[in-house]
Design a protein around this nucleic acid. Structure first.
Lengths: 218, 218
DNA sequence: GGATGGTTCAAACGGGCGCTTGACTCCAGC
DNA sequence: GCTGGAGTCAAGCGCCCGTTTGAACCATCC
């Protein structure tokens, strides 16, 4: 029962916990993160997790909910209908997507790495939440854009492959961040750098889609 | 109680440990895997790890060494010089790469997931080993093929982006396996299915590279 | 002033972890 | 038959984990 307009000290602790947890879960994943280190970072007692969120897992899901909320509210997803040329739609979409995935701002600092960890070590609730609210809508929109660009009729499986190829181009820099860095090609982190890379990926995808002739062999 | 067959009982245990460890490390990653569960799966005593490999970490590196060895020895990497048309080199390379990444055979069952875990939660030694012996040579060869296909002069950064775009197309199905499955588009596991997808990715990449005109804005 | 209820705290619980120990079996070489 | 080293084993070490507990704190209301 927090009737105060300003934050009560309890709300403060709750929020500090959420922030520290987001940081830690994003850094090392759910299993490797420890409640103790989160509480230490949040300057809170260990039992505060139990009190405010119930359990480590509930805290994790709260972090996911916050991250998903931030992702969709930060910048609206471009839609095919907003553009005359579907190629422009793809350009805008790729730029939006890569900003979403790569930007490490105050707005959505964790989503990218949370997802990367979840991809490799799924947690029952979190991945379902992500697929339903984020991955689903994103791939659906890319699917429509790809269809509008390619135009030629195409097997469903091939179409899906191309859709996920576009997704791959956008998420790979984040996904393979460590390897790319070790290979001397770290992903961009400035907005300008991200937009530059997005332009490259978009043009590569556009000419890849318009020139695609890969179904003879089937 | 194992009577001596061709191998000594010690070699047997050593090998069973390596196999069980590969399976477990690939499944859950280094940190989440436990020596106890590995030994249980290998039907060996906990102290066998210390006796045969020295430590959990040394066992992990032994698994990596075995996986890397299997990866390079399974099927030789196609090289640009073996083809008249660099496009054919890319076709062969993508097919080889995707078979390598996606195949869950007796030959190299763990490498893909080991790498996925390592990508997101790096272990000092293992990722370095992988980058030096696997990722480095692979990206270097793709770089040469891409250069041969594009021909136009191009900024180094843009060129690298395109190289890693090709890599992204090949590794994404493995990398995002869980999400793709939840979205109703599981990666192929049969050789025929992998080759089909590889053909799609290769043609997409080829027309993407030949038609690429993405440097005006710079 | 005293009771109430939300919030924080140090301490401890049970359990799993990687690793170590020391006794045990087994077998080849003498 | 004895010995010594290779290999195995159950037991236990200290540590960190997520969680629980019960008391203390403190603003609020009677």
């Amino acid at each position: 029962m927090a009737y105060h307009a300003s934050n009560s000290p309890a709300d403060d602790t709750r929020e500090r916990l959420l922030h520290a947890a987001g940081h830690e879960f994003a850094r090392v994943g759910f299993a490797a993160a420890s409640v103790r280190s989160i509480c230490e970072a949040a300057d809170a007692n260990v039992s505060a997790v139990k009190y405010h969120y119930g359990s480590k897992e509930s805290l994790y899901l709260a972090v996911w909910a916050a991250a998903a909320e931030q992702m969709v509210s930060a910048e609206p997803m471009p839609r095919l209908e907003q553009f005359e040329d579907p190629k422009d739609a793809l350009r805008a979409f790729v730029a939006w997507f890569m900003r979403l995935v790569l930007t490490e701002s105050k707005i959505h600092p964790w989503a990218g790495r949370l997802l990367a960890h979840e991809t490799v070590s799924p947690t029952p609730g979190a991945l379902d939440m992500f697929v339903k609210h984020c991955a689903g809508p994103v791939t659906q929109e890319i699917s429509r854009i790809v269809k509008a660009i390619v135009r030629r009729p195409m097997k469903a499986k091939t179409h899906d492959d191309l859709v996920f190829a576009v997704v791959a181009l956008c998420v790979n820099p984040k996904h393979s961040c460590e390897i790319l860095t070790k290979l001397g090609h770290p992903p961009p982190d400035s907005r300008a750098g991200i937009n530059r890379m997005a332009r490259v990926m978009a043009e590569f995808a556009i000419s890849g889609l318009t020139g695609f002739t890969g179904e003879e062999g089937d």
